[in-house]
């Protein structure tokens, strides 16, 4: 039982890290970025490239993957979202443009890396397993949880305590007013995407580390769970995404244990539904679900 809880917790930390990038863009900019999953996948493949092919040590690969993710995020914002700003169909068109961008990104990843599954060799990252109180925990899991927490707390600090973070919160409240006050809204938007994508790419790397391999479809699977996490936690709430990721991971583990694996998604979406009907702003969110 304890093992199941541990399983769920670690799985949840990746959900949380993925979701947090998602919810950041939505919370600040009201965009649903459907390219996030592709950036996640790219991060995973890049990490394999850096570690297994270029032979870089893993501690160096972490920041490089995040940097790459950030750059892709800047590109994404510039190409797929900025040209749409102010247009009446901004939100619908943004969905399509982010889908298109994501598709192009995955095609490029396939062009570079082929179609096989990729994995990080154990020389680069040891396959250690520890046993605590009868529960088996791998080094990869610990690293994931640790890094995810550090990154999430880091992001929360940025948003709460730095000038950039204050500017982001201002833009989230009222972009027009923020602009009038002298905040460079374009730069804030670009930074938001860069941060979000850096985290997404990192989540991809941690996923590959944890799972043992990455494949081109890894983004799709986590995307849907990501939706459930951000709704559960509250759109735009960072703490919510963190908490909801962990909660969902636990819930899934318990469902698999007691009911069966097929139903874990039903549980996730059932929770999503219930929250949307009962408390649409999510467990911790403050954004109103009805934009009247």
């Amino acid at each position: 039982m304890l093992q199941q809880l541990a399983n769920g917790l670690f799985a949840g930390s990746i959900y949380a890290l993925f979701a947090i990038g998602f919810t950041l863009v939505f919370g600040i900019l009201r965009h649903l970025n459907l390219a996030h999953a592709a950036i996640f996948t790219t991060g995973g493949f890049l990490s394999v490239d850096l570690i297994s092919r270029q032979g870089l040590p893993i501690w160096l690969a972490f920041p490089l993957v995040m940097l790459a993710g950030g750059l892709i995020g800047l590109l994404l914002e510039r190409i797929a979202f900025r040209p749409l700003a102010g247009r009446p169909d901004e939100h619908f068109a943004g969905l399509i443009s982010s889908v298109a961008f994501g598709g192009m990104l995955i095609a490029l990843v396939q062009a570079r890396y082929g179609t096989e599954q990729q994995s990080i060799s154990s020389e680069a990252f040891p396959n250690e397993v520890y046993t605590v109180a009868g529960v088996s925990i791998s080094l990869a899991q610990l690293t994931t949880l640790g890094l995810a927490l550090v990154l999430m707390l880091g992001l929360a600090w940025v948003v709460a305590a730095t000038p950039l973070g204050r500017a982001m919160r201002a833009v989230a409240e009222n972009a027009r007013a923020a602009r009038v006050l002298g905040i460079n809204v374009e730069r804030v938007t670009a930074s938001t995407y860069a941060l979000s994508s850096a985290l997404g790419a990192m989540a991809g790397m941690l996923m590959v580390l944890n799972v043992g391999q990455g494949d081109l479809g890894m983004g799709l699977a986590i995307e849907l769970t990501g939706f459930a996490v951000i709704i559960l936690g509250g759109m735009g709430s960072l703490w919510g995404a963190m908490a909801a990721g962990l909660i969902l991971g636990l819930a899934e583990a318990l469902t698999i244990h007691h009911i069966g694996s097929s139903w874990k998604d039903v549980v996730a979406f059932g929770l999503l539904f219930a929250i949307l009907l009962v408390r649409p702003q999510g467990l911790f969110g403050t954004i109103k679900a009805r934009e009247v």
Binding site: L32, F227, V266, F273, A289, R290
Partner: peptide
């Protein structure tokens, strides 16, 4: 039930529904 939702919330709720049907 989803009548009072708008925008992205409606989108996600309906996507979730489709997934549940699939399962």
């Amino acid at each position: 039930p989803v009548m009072r939702l708008r925008g992205v919330f409606l989108a996600i709720a309906t996507i979730a529904f489709a997934e549940v049907v699939r399962i």
